[in-house]
Amino acid sequence: MTRTLLLSAIVTALTLWGLALAAIPLRTRPWWRHLGTGAAVAGWLVVVGAILGLWLDLGRPPLRTLGETRLWYAALVAGIGLALEWRLRLTVLRLPMLAMAGMFLALDLFRPDALDRTLRPALHSAWFVPHVATYLAAYALLGLACATALHGWWCVRRGELPAQAAAVPVLLVDLGLPLLTLGMILGAVWAKQAWGHYWAWDPKETWALATWVVYVGIVHFTRLRPDAHRTHLTLIAVAFATVCLCWFAVQWLPSAVVSVHTYTSD
């Protein structure tokens, strides 16, 4: 897959998701509702196709660079969002889901990575895809939780918080935390296989643990005070900053000088 083809796929997916977003205010009419859902699903299929094409072309899982993980992230946010929308008959997820997925996809449009076919020896492992994919699925759920929490706050500002808008962010965190746990253990077992250590206190690992700890606190708080909806929304929206820090921003921290985990531009 050439860079032009990849960028075309991104533009197509963004256009389709834009159409799905435009259809949201009109979804009381069946025709618009079906058009919106069709456009959202079609956009998701285009992104999945782009990932598969990239995988085949690069000859390695496209999970190495920041841009590649953003592509997966957009696909997972949209895929998980659509699946939950269908299974739980949700109506509040469409706008935050498409906004979040579209934002990450747009970042790939404006900051494209070099299509680097190389993969470091340590990443030639059966653990690579399960570990990173589990983490990205957890991040997708937590990102969706943040977006729906912000949407919930918007509802609060308008004076009414529907049951779904209050409960969905909590559910998403509840589903994301176990995946975060699994991803962390998978990473530790992989490290043991590759280097003989489960954990090396690399800044990226430390932030992964800090992120996990923050969400453990939030999940327990939602069980302790199930009716404190506004606090839930605030905590869930703010907590996503730790995910972003762990994912993108570790390389800017003073501790990154000793990190072997940060994404590089190459």
Partner: peptide, 8 residues
């Protein structure tokens, strides 16, 4: 954890 996470 914060000191470990932020500074070397």
């Amino acid at each position: 954890l914060l000191p470990v996470a932020i500074w070397p």
